[in-house]
Amino acid sequence: MRTTVVLTLTSFAAAMVVGTVVAAFRVSPVPPLRAAGAVWVQMLRNTPLTVLLLLFVFGFTKIGLQYSFEVSSVIVFGAYTSAFVAETVRSGINAVARGQAEAARAVGLTFPQILGIVVLPQAFRTVVAPLGNIFIALTKNTSIAAIISVLELTEVADRLNNATARPIPVFLGAAVAYLVLTLPSGFAFGWLERKVAIRR
């Protein structure tokens, strides 16, 4: 269970950073960056996470990218989730009133300044709830690390089941453990959403 938590938190942190950068690329005035952002998002979003994980672990080792299974999982989960974060943040950016960016431009801010100081802080507020959904989905997705025998919740349950041959209590216990993880994070994001909501 600790592994699941650690995997989730580190991957989510990575995904937030990369996803925000990619979202910035996608709305930037520089065409090559926009294209690169779009390719990143479409490629990662439309490939099954399982394929990505296996490709990274078994394929990329052939070109010298070899990491422990845990690190590989974080890289793959982070990259996959960043595509969804990018799309969410982008929708948040689009939801920020146009006048905000126009006003910022009128006082002479450059694009990175407009985005970083004016638009992004407002964008994040509006997308707290969808980001929470992404976080919960990621918590569940970390179970896929079980296929490369990272000892997280699902893998532990699978091994316990093999050892004890009592599938119902074992898998039910694992399911409850996931609930214990996802329900509080749902509440936490709900709280955060109310806290940062823009009062009108």
């Binding site: 569940k140 179970s143 699902t154 349950a157 699978d158 694992a174 609930l179 329900l183």
Partner: peptide
């Protein structure tokens, strides 16, 4: 609420390993 909160992989393992039993 239950099935939405549980990872699919866990469901697949349960379905394939437990149900035949």
């Amino acid at each position: 609420e239950f099935f939405r909160a549980v990872p699919l992989l866990l469901l697949i393992l349960f379905s394939a390993l437990a149900l035949p039993k």
